[in-house]
C-alpha cells in the first residue's frame, strides 16, 4: 500500500519528511484558527440578518491597518505588550463602530422591509461598502505594502523537547514562527471568548434566539433590530481582529481583504451557512488543506500561485453538490 502510494510522490521527495508534514499541519491549523474567527463573524451576520456581507474582507483589511497605525504612533511611548493589546482593542473598536454605523444607515431600512428585493439590495450595498472602504484606505495609506512589527514576544524558555526563543518555537524538530503562533493563539482565545459569549451570556442567547426565530424573539421582548446591529458590529469586529493579528505576518495592501473574504465565503459554505460549529471546523479544514496543498504540490513554482485555488475549488464543489455544507440547517 505504502509502496504504491510512493509511486505518486513528486520528484522533490527529499523535502517531504514527517517533520515537514507536521509543520505544514501545525501552520495550517494556526492559520485555520484565524480563518475560523473570520468565518464566525460572517456566520453571525448571516444567521441573524440573513445576508452574506460582501464587505467582510474590508473589515479584515481595516483591522490590520488600525493595528499598523496604532503601532506607528505608540510603539515607542508605551511598553511593548501594552501597545499590542491596545492595538488589538483599537482595531476591534474601529471595525465594530464602522459595522454598527453601516448597519444602522444601510441595512436597517432593509430589515424594516422598506426596500424591494432585499437580497439584491444586501449584495449590492455590502459590496458598495467594500468598494468604498478599499479606495478610502488606498487614499489614506497609499498602494505600497505595509507590514507591522510583531507586537508580542514569546516567553523565552528551554524545556528540552519544547524550546522557545523570542521569535520562534521549536517542538522536537518542528519550528514555528512566533508571528503565526501568536496570531493563532489570539484567534483561539477570541474564539473561546466568542463561544462563551454566544452560549453563556444573555445577549449571546438573545442573538441565537433572534437567528432561530425573529418573531418569537420579539414576543419574549428582545428587540430584533438591536440584535441586527449588534450581530453586524460583532461580525465586523471579528473580521477586524483577524486582520489585526495577521498584519504582522503578511504585508498589507488595501485589497488584501479580497482573498480573505473569499476564504471566509468558502468556509461558511463548507461548514453550512449559519452554523457555528461549521464555521469553526470549516476554517481549520481550509487552513490545513491550503497548507498541505501548497507544501505538497508537485510543482513548487506554481504551488504558491495555486494556494488560494484549493479552497475555491472546494467551495465551488460544495456549492454545487451540497449547498447546505457540513452542518447546514437549511438553505
Amino acid at each position: 500500500m505504502v509502496a504504491t502510494l510512493l509511486h505518486f510522490v513528486p520528484a522533490q521527495m527529499w523535502l517531504i519528511t514527517p517533520e515537514f508534514i507536521l509543520r505544514l499541519l501545525a501552520e495550517g491549523l494556526l492559520i485555520g484558527l484565524i480563518y475560523s474567527l473570520m468565518a464566525l463573524g460572517l456566520t453571525l451576520i448571516f444567521s441573524v440578518l440573513g445576508i452574506v456581507s460582501f464587505s467582510h474582507g474590508e473589515f479584515y483589511m481595516i483591522g490590520g491597518y488600525v493595528v499598523y497605525l496604532f503601532l506607528q504612533k505608540f510603539q515607542n511611548s508605551l511598553p511593548r505588550a501594552l501597545t499590542g493589546i491596545g492595538a488589538l482593542l483599537a482595531a476591534m473598536l474601529v471595525t465594530f463602530a464602522i459595522g454598527v454605523v453601516f448597519e444602522r444607515l444601510f441595512l436597517q431600512p432593509m430589515a424594516r422591509g422598506e426596500v424591494d428585493r432585499p437580497n439584491e439590495y444586501a449584495i449590492l450595498t455590502t459590496f458598495g461598502l467594500a468598494f468604498f472602504l478599499q479606495y478610502l484606505m488606498l487614499g489614506l495609506m497609499g498602494p505600497f505594502p505595509k507590514k507591522a512589527r510583531r507586537f508580542f514576544d514569546l516567553p523565552v524558555f528551554d524545556a528540552g523537547l519544547i524550546q522557545a526563543t523570542k521569535a520562534s518555537l521549536k517542538i522536537g524538530n518542528i519550528t514555528l514562527g512566533a508571528g503565526r503562533l501568536i496570531a493563532g493563539l489570539i484567534a483561539l482565545l477570541a474564539l473561546l471568548a466568542m463561544l462563551y459569549f454566544m452560549f453563556k451570556t444573555w445577549t449571546g442567547r438573545a442573538l441565537q434566539a433572534t437567528s432561530q426565530d425573529r418573531q418569537a424573539a420579539a414576543v419574549v421582548g428582545i428587540n430584533p433590530m438591536n440584535m441586527n446591529t449588534l450581530a453586524f458590529g460583532l461580525g465586523a469586529m471579528l473580521a477586524g481582529l483577524a486582520g489585526a493579528v495577521l498584519v504582522s505576518v503578511y504585508s498589507w495592501v488595501p485589497w488584501v481583504g479580497v482573498i480573505a473574504s473569499s476564504k471566509s465565503f468558502v468556509i461558511i459554505v463548507l461548514g453550512g451557512m449559519g452554523s457555528i460549529p461549521g464555521s469553526l471546523l470549516g476554517g481549520l479544514i481550509i487552513g490545513v488543506v491550503e497548507s498541505l496543498g501548497t507544501g505538497l504540490f508537485p510543482d513548487p513554482v506554481r504551488a504558491q500561485a495555486y494556494r488560494d485555488v484549493f479552497g475555491l475549488v472546494i467551495f465551488a464543489l460544495v456549492l454545487l453538490v451540497k449547498p447546505t455544507g457540513l452542518f447546514g440547517r437549511k438553505l
Binding site: 441565537q208 432561530q212 418573531q215
Partner: peptide, 9 residues
C-alpha cells in the same frame, strides 16, 4: 399559530 420555539436551544 406556527410553533415559535427556538429549535436549537
Amino acid at each position: 399559530q406556527r410553533m415559535s420555539i427556538f429549535r436549537w436551544m
